[in-house]
């Protein structure tokens, strides 16, 4: 039983991490209908920037919480700038290009960001400092750290905040209008370019926060960390129905739980035939099954045809 509770906690933490990254994916997709494959790399840049700021500041004797805050702020600022530049340079000229062109560009951007990060931060793995005390709390026989609680909370807060932004504010209405039809939104006085830029900048800020959370949780940062994370988050976003904020959260949590419970129990259930080495297979298998029965994801809109 303790083991089961622990696995649920593991799954929720992992799922919230996926959700944090997936929210950024889904937000950009919701407005632009574009898979920003480079989102994972923005997460990576966020983590490494935060690290680059926190370490020297803390080393210089700045109180720990201040150093962390400065690091997170720097990461957010850097990623916002990066998001703005990426959109401006790589995606905007392709607004009317064939569907696959931005995808290829995104792969190119992803390669460039990775290499730049490697040139700046080197090839080595970096240890990332503990943001909160790592002593675990015991719930029954299971263990949970403060940081894990914080990650789940941040993911939920972010989702709620984004939902409020998109559904309740003027900016959100402009975003939805742009998503619906940029030309007509333009006629209504919405500056579509401005809205798209803002979407990217907000999505990148989310990526920065996600990067700091991920690196703090695992205590590690590396120029190559974004790719797999981005891929998993993308899977989560699609599972939940890409373009849908609640869906991204749900997809993330679901994917996390599937991976944790799959790794934890399938081995015993199949008598050792399938083990934790098939962890990713379970995740993709569930995804495929869900998409066969609900072709636009769990929470996706029924209309799958979007321009």
């Amino acid at each position: 039983m303790d083991t089961f509770v622990q696995q649920i906690i593991n799954g929720l933490t992992l799922g919230s991490i996926y959700a944090l990254v997936a929210l950024g994916y889904t937000m950009v997709y919701g407005i632009l209908g574009l898979i920003n494959f480079a989102h994972g790399e923005v997460v990576m840049i966020g983590a490494l920037t935060a690290l680059a700021v926190i370490k020297p500041l803390a080393g210089a004797g700045l109180p720990w919480p201040l150093a962390v805050l400065a690091g997170v702020a720097a990461a957010i600022a850097a990623c916002m700038a990066l998001g703005f530049v990426i959109e401006r340079v790589a995606y905007r000229p392709l607004r009317n290009a064939p569907r696959l062109a931005p995808l290829i560009t995104a792969i190119g951007v992803s390669m460039v960001l990775q290499q730049l990060a490697m040139i700046i931060w080197g090839r080595n793995y970096h240890s990332f400092p503990q943001l909160l005390p790592a002593t675990p709390r015991a719930i029954g026989g299971a263990q949970i750290t403060d940081l894990q609680i914080m990650i789940v909370a941040v993911a939920i807060l972010m989702m709620a905040g984004l939902a409020l932004l998109v559904n309740r504010t003027r900016l959100g209405r402009a975003m939805r209008a742009t998503a619906e039809n940029p030309q007509i939104a333009g006629l209504m006085g919405v500056d579509a370019n401005h809205i798209v830029s803002l979407t990217f900048v907000i999505g990148s800020a989310l990526a920065a926060v996600a990067g700091v959370m991920v690196s703090a949780n695992y205590g590690i940062a590396h120029y190559n960390m974004g790719f797999i994370l981005g891929l998993k988050a993308f899977t989560a976003a699609v599972l939940g129905g890409i373009g849908n904020l609640t869906g991204a959260m749900l997809g993330g949590i679901l994917l996390g739980l599937i991976e944790a419970l799959g790794a934890g129990y399938i081995g015993d259930l199949t008598g050792g035939f399938l083990g934790s080495d098939y962890q990713d297979v379970f995740a993709f298998f569930v995804l495929i099954v869900v998409l066969i029965f609900r072709p636009s994801g769990l929470m996706g809109e029924k209309v799958s045809e979007r321009a």
Binding site: V89, P102, I104, T105
Partner: peptide, 14 residues
């Protein structure tokens, strides 16, 4: 090499 390769992908698509 990889940097230029990435840039080439971006530029060609532009």
């Amino acid at each position: 090499r990889i940097l230029l390769f990435g840039l080439a992908l971006i530029l060609v698509m532009q």
